[in-house]
Nucleic acid binder design. Structure first.
Lengths: 303, 303
DNA sequence: AAACACTATTGCGTAATTTGAAATAATCGG
DNA sequence: CCGATTATTTCAAATTACGCAATAGTGTTT
């Protein structure tokens, strides 16, 4: 029976080795199980050359059916655990590095504590990962995803602040309008280009400024640290700079000109029945983000 | 995975003991597998009192889904073996006793010989059996079945003959019309009544006669043997009397008055994809019956 | 009410199955 | 034609499943 799942995985991973790695099995076992399945059915499902595999005609038919059937079975079991209300097993989550450390970590800890039968694996990585391919249950990402096979649930508005170190401002003066940024060193994300456009919503509507600076990076913490050291002005998400702001190593500028906030999305595979463990985490995150947001985002000013 | 099948069987058999017997398993194993399934799902599926079992709410939902899914899986695998064209596994057939010995046995032997990978189990029994409940693949029965969940495929017309022993006829004279039967001892099937109605199609249409005799039985061979011994007149299917007729221990009478023939049906469970092994046997039987019937039923007189 | 009959679960020793590391065979790319 | 990668096979070890017998529990019967 499990053979079916293995067979499907081998086909989807296009190879025994890849499939075995995906399922944390040895190649030996994988090969044997598929072979056993073929012998049970009395039909060859895969054409193997040692270098590549392909489905036989029968295998193609069987694969299509079995994949659907397995998916229905998963649905049935999900439906089951839904009415039991409790979740068990393993929940694999991925999130961006800094967000994961600063915001997610305490939430996840509380969540894991609330569900002792659930083992939570939190994988922090700034790369966007193929979530279904890696067997992940949920990805937390900033910005809307391209992969439309995923459900994207907005979790949290992420405010962004324009900040600089007090020493920098003392030396170069604080910009009063977005246009002033042109005369400053603006540290920005590395989108493979030297220039970046910052859009700020002022009293007269949005203003776009094409900034440039002496440093850019694909890592927000690098930018934050550089700003702290007085290298320039940064535009970063709240969680990235809140500590530096609290310690007065950075201070906000251009407060009348808010950059449009990002949104943090929870991404998870689209299914008939959303697994309970995903549902639980989702609800928990929405709740946690909502509670935490009251003070931080919606009712007033940042700390 | 097999656990699913076991669970479904336990529910359908309404008990571990019955299900175990059906699957040729021990009750121990059955109980353990269901328990393992429940533990894997983390949900109790069955409410057991040691005397009776019932589905929990979750179990009911799961059962419905899983039964459907398993049926789809079987379909998929059948579809597979259909395009392979060959059959394997076990084919369980039931048939009436005498028909099985006289007609079916040589056919089945040839069929089994033609399909070495198929193990054929022929269960001869004059009782009509719950074919799906007993895990049978096909039942051969004379007369149309009540169970509408089965597909009934006519295989063979079964002519019936009115016969008596030569000695009997010499002593009492041969009846010339159906009405003459009233003056004779007619050995008939035991339908829990002493009387039976014989309908014979004569030149002026069907004539029904309510016969009675000194012996009745629910077993055709008993009647045949009794007739050979001169106890009376019988109306029996061809296969039941052909040997006695060939050896002149019986002879046909009232040849101008043919009783309406019976029909032998092949009964098998209705499914999306008829299993290859059933399909093969069915085709084989139709062919065999057709070939054998040319001389025996359609073109002329019996031997 | 109490004994009975039947059913499901558990303990334990045994047997079968499965497993992984390493060796082997086989194929694609250079 | 060789090197690199991939699937299969070999064989011993370990995990797992199994059946028998005993246990516990429930509905029925006397």
């Amino acid at each position: 029976m499990e053979d079916l799942e293995i067979f499907v995985n081998v086909v989807e991973a296009d190879g025994f080795t890849a499939a075995a790695a995906l399922m944390n099995m040895t190649v030996t076992a994988t090969s044997r199980r598929v072979k056993a399945l073929e012998e049970r059915l009395g039909v060859r499902l895969l054409n193997r050359t040692t270098r590549r595999i392909s489905l036989t005609e029968a295998g193609q038919i069987y694969f299509d059916q079995v994949r659907r059937i397995l998916s229905e079975l998963r649905d049935a079991e999900e439906q089951l655990s839904q009415l039991s209300g409790s979740a068990r097993g393993t929940l694999r989550v991925t999130a961006p590095m800094t967000f994961g450390v600063r915001r997610l970590a305490p939430w996840i800890a509380r969540f894991a504590d609330a569900h002792p039968q659930l083992q939570v694996q939190l994988h922090l990585d700034d790369q966007t990962i193929d979530i279904v391919g890696q067997g992940l249950d949920m990805a937390l990402r900033i910005g809307y995803p391209r992969d439309s096979s995923l459900i994207a649930r907005p979790i949290l508005p992420v405010a962004r602040y324009v900040c600089a170190a007090p020493a920098y401002l003392q030396k170069w003066g604080a910009p009063q309008t977005p246009l002033d940024l042109l005369r400053h060193s603006c540290l920005h994300y590395d989108n493979l280009s030297v220039r970046e456009e910052w859009t700020l919503n002022g009293p007269d509507g949005p203003e776009a400024v094409e900034v440039q600076g002496r440093l850019c990076s694909n890592n927000g913490e690098v930018l934050c640290e550089a700003a702290v050291q007085g290298l320039g002005i940064v535009l970063l998400p709240d969680f990235m700079v809140e500590q530096a702001l609290a310690e007065n190593r950075l201070q906000r500028i251009l407060e009348g000109f808010e950059p449009p906030p990002f949104t943090l999305y929870a991404l998870y595979p689209s299914r008939h029945f959303v697994p309970t463990k995903i549902r639980l985490l989702l609800d928990f995150l929405i709740l946690a983000a909502g509670q935490g947001a009251i003070g931080r985002h919606f009712s007033g000013n940042p700390p």
